[in-house]
Design a protein around this nucleic acid. Structure first.
Lengths: 253, 253
DNA sequence: CGGGACTTTGAGCTTTCTCAACGATGGTGG
DNA sequence: CCACCATCGTTGAGAAAGCTCAAAGTCCCG
């Protein structure tokens, strides 16, 4: 089922020498925490990092295991999730390039993380990262800023999970994902008829929205029937009425 | 309905002189962010603060309004919540002494906040707070630590809202609240037969757990019938079987 | 002692879940 | 290149958890 390379969960880049070049080519250079540093300062951060790649599908962080590393995503998408003993799963987020995980410096990870496609990351040993923080307060400030925003996003997701209907949840997700894809701040700026790729399966979607795959499928096809969107393929959709979708997401329509 | 003092949402302490004394008497002195500073350094932070009191029931932060202040709670309990246009409400947290709100330095508040009883707070103008950060990096570090933990807690709450049953949600809340009251780390250390006060109404509980008041009431009385707890009064309960409750909360039983 | 707000309990209903079958899609080997 | 198979998604029918609406009970506070 797995090839020999897929068996290896994590591959560590063996060339720590060309670090500066790495960062210049990196897709995350001007996003997230790296963006807080100048090219020269980034060299210091870079030397504290191990560059690792994770094969598609592999879980590289296991909930409840000792939290040894802080990760920053260089390429690919990561699924972060928690599970209950009987197997029920909840996905807390889909992280993309420039986003990080493992911020909580508690003793053990409070979540699991898996690569959705092939993923490249910078990995930092915690004590090493603290050294870098001491050297560059700007990093810590940036981290606090991002964490604050994530906290706000988490509260928004709680509202979704606690009080929104299935259709509202799906509409919220679609609008949010589209905004992220078009990197626009507000849902009102969304371009209609733009093609939107959903890299996650219906199972993932359901586990993210607190629903079942059947309800996700039904809601999605209801939107289709109502002419709000078109399903170009099973994982690609075209927003015909982003405005209306946004209203459903907000609980207005 | 309201007395003249209740009408005033926020009362500002007019004596900014005795700041050092204030902090020594403050219940939050050795919790949260204040605990990160020495007595002398705290004087600096204290001089940046306005001490305010909020009458029971008053909403002192309104969602979507310009985010001018950062608050730290000195006494009382604060309900933090978000609402949908049609009135549906979700409570994201009950904050107590030493906890803060208003961390997200975005343009507008993403939540509302109301005093559950009479509340005393330290209020910081944002630009002023940033000055303090520049002076005391330890503060910022502490803030990052706390924010990280809150993020972890938020993810746990998402699991609750997305995947737990009504009984599991209520059990989770009770166990968590008891642990907070007894200030113990793990639910396994909970003292049985301890009296636990719930300062919030069933409506609050429902809006926190993503349920209705009826379901909260039914679940609670089911626990009572099963001998897991006793209702000393409507807002005070005695945990007879904290172990079992913890198992229900974890999704095992 | 009375009134208002909150809580509990009951009965019926709705949304979503569960279980099951069918259909589409994409990769693989003949 | 096509047929096959595994996986994933869709659709349908029935069940159930939790919601809604309604009424009765309780508690606090004046």
């Amino acid at each position: 089922m797995y090839s020999s390379t897929m068996r290896r969960a994590i591959t560590i880049d063996p060339t720590p020498g060309r670090t500066a070049a790495h960062c210049q080519e990196c897709g995350a250079r001007h996003i997230g925490i790296c963006d807080a540093l100048s090219d020269e300062d980034l060299g210091f951060l870079s030397r504290a990092a191990q560059r690792v790649t994770v094969a598609a599908g592999r879980t590289f962080v296991e909930e409840a295991e000792p939290a040894g590393y802080f990760y920053n995503i260089n390429a690919g998408t990561v699924r972060v999730f928690k599970t209950l003993p009987d197997g029920r799963r909840h996905i807390t987020g889909f992280l993309g390039v420039g986003q990080f995980l493992g911020l909580d410096f508690g003793g053990n990870y409070a979540f699991s993380a898996a690569a959705m496609g092939d993923v490249a990351l910078c990995r930092f040993h915690r004590p090493r990262l603290l050294e870098v923080f001491a050297e560059f307060p700007a990093l810590e400030r940036r981290l606090l800023n991002i964490a604050s925003h994530e906290l706000t996003a988490a509260h928004e997701q709680m509202l979704l999970l606690g009080r929104k209907t299935a259709r509202e949840r799906l509409a919220s997700f679609i609008i949010g994902w589209a905004a992220r894809a078009q990197s626009c701040q507000s849902a009102t700026m969304l371009v209609p008829n733009a093609r939107l790729t959903l890299p996650m399966s219906r199972v993932d979607l359901a586990d993210y929205l607190g629903l079942t795959i059947e309800t996700v499928s039904r809601s999605l096809n209801l939107f289709k029937k109502q002419g709000l969107l078109r399903l170009a393929s099973v994982s690609e959709l075209v927003l015909l009425q982003p405005q209306l979708l946004a209203e459903i997401a907000a609980g207005i329509a």
